[in-house]
Amino acid sequence: MMPRYSKEGFVPKISQILIVVLVFVGLTALFYALGSRLQRLVLGAKQSVASTAGRTNFLLLGVPGEAYSGQDLTDTLIFFSLDQSSGESWLLSLPRDIWIAAMRAKLNTVYHYAEKNQPGSGLAESKKVVGEILGQPIHYAVLLDFGGFRQVIDTLGGVPVDVERAFDDYRYPIPGKENDECSGDSNYQCRYEHLHFEKGLQLMDGERALKYVRSRFAEGEEGTDFARSRRQQQIITAIRKKLLSWETLRDGKRLRLLYEVFNQSIKTDVPPSAYFGLAQLALQFKTANIKTAGLEDLLVNPPASTQYDFQWVLMPRTDWSEIHRMVVKRLTN
């Protein structure tokens, strides 16, 4: 009997929601930044938000960006389905190690190889492959470069964050130092920096906020997943509140800057004619309405063999149809 999936790889629930919120507020900013004339054209367009049986399905992809190795490997893959009438949504994280037999490669490499073989085809190929895994149509794909996270916050002028307790993290990874031998240091200290956060209300720029939400090895209670999730929720709330505030929405210059940031950080096949519909959904979007699920009970890690090029991979415990049935059940209940 093959072992069930247990390797760490699923994005924590609150991190998934952070990605969804960033995508929705980004599309909202794009719409408002179009300007009044282009907005009227968009509003007058006949094309609406695509859907099947009243649901719009998205594939959300996250890449680490140029500062990290594997800059176009989609280590974050999320299927996000939204019911247009009720506003309820369902989110499913896909592990990057799912084996794609036709490609003899893992799921997180689909975008990379598609772009390498035919530039501009990465989103379409990713939608196709994930659609086959889940047995669902995928209407839109969005790829988010996490480097844009910092720029969004900086463009907003920073976000206020009330740090509940002071903490230190002595093992925060430094981008680009992952393989540094540190001159023989067995503890590899040169790969990490020391983070310190004081208790109390403070204005964080993009770099500081990113470290605040990504810190994983803080000493004491702040080193728990629960504390990290709470910090991420703080940033989610702060970004959404400031981005959708009247102060921001009436600031044409800032909206244009946000448009440029999102334009550089987000690749999508969402047409401009759908921006208004998605912006409306974003304005009424509430993270509390998101239901989440994972595939861990339906996947197994087969023994290393030539069949998988001796890689650590994941395969369905029976066949793909079991996953299809689970998805249908979740979407219809």
Rank of each mutant, 00 (worst) to 15 (best):
M2R: 14
R4N: 10
Y5W: 09
Y5D: 09
G9Q: 08
G9E: 11
K13V: 12
I14G: 01
V21F: 02
F24E: 04
F24Y: 04
V25Y: 01
G26V: 12
G26D: 14
G26E: 14
T28M: 14
T28G: 09
A29I: 10
L30H: 01
L30G: 00
Y32P: 00
L34H: 05
L38F: 15
V42M: 05
G44I: 08
Q47H: 08
Q47N: 06
A53T: 13
F58D: 11
L60Y: 10
L60D: 08
Y68I: 03
D72Y: 04
L73P: 11
T74K: 15
I78N: 04
F80N: 08
D83K: 01
Q84S: 02
S86P: 14
S86W: 12
W90D: 02
W90E: 06
D97V: 02
I100Y: 00
M103K: 03
V110R: 09
Y111V: 09
Y111D: 00
N117V: 01
G120A: 06
G122W: 10
E125D: 00
K128P: 01
V130G: 09
V130L: 06
G131W: 07
I133L: 15
G135I: 01
Q136G: 09
P137D: 09
P137N: 07
D145R: 06
D145S: 08
F146V: 08
F149T: 05
R150D: 13
Q151S: 10
Q151E: 10
V152C: 12
D154E: 06
V159Q: 05
A166E: 15
D168L: 14
R171C: 03
Y172A: 05
Y172R: 14
I174N: 06
K177S: 05
E178I: 12
N179I: 06
E181T: 07
Y192M: 03
H194A: 00
L201R: 12
R208K: 11
K211F: 09
Y212P: 04
V213P: 00
A218F: 00
E219M: 03
E221F: 10
Q234F: 11
I235D: 11
K242C: 02
W246Q: 09
W246Y: 12
E247G: 13
R256C: 01
L257S: 11
Y259D: 12
Y259Q: 15
E260V: 02
V261E: 04
V261S: 03
F262L: 00
S265R: 01
S265T: 11
A274D: 01
A274T: 04
Y275I: 07
Y275N: 02
Y275M: 09
G277Q: 11
A279E: 11
A279H: 08
L281Y: 13
Q284A: 07
Q284N: 14
T292R: 02
G294F: 04
P302V: 11
A304C: 13
A304Q: 15
T306W: 10
Q307W: 04
Q307G: 04
Y308M: 12
F310P: 07
V313Q: 07
L314C: 06
T318W: 11
S321H: 13
M326C: 03
L331N: 08
N333D: 15
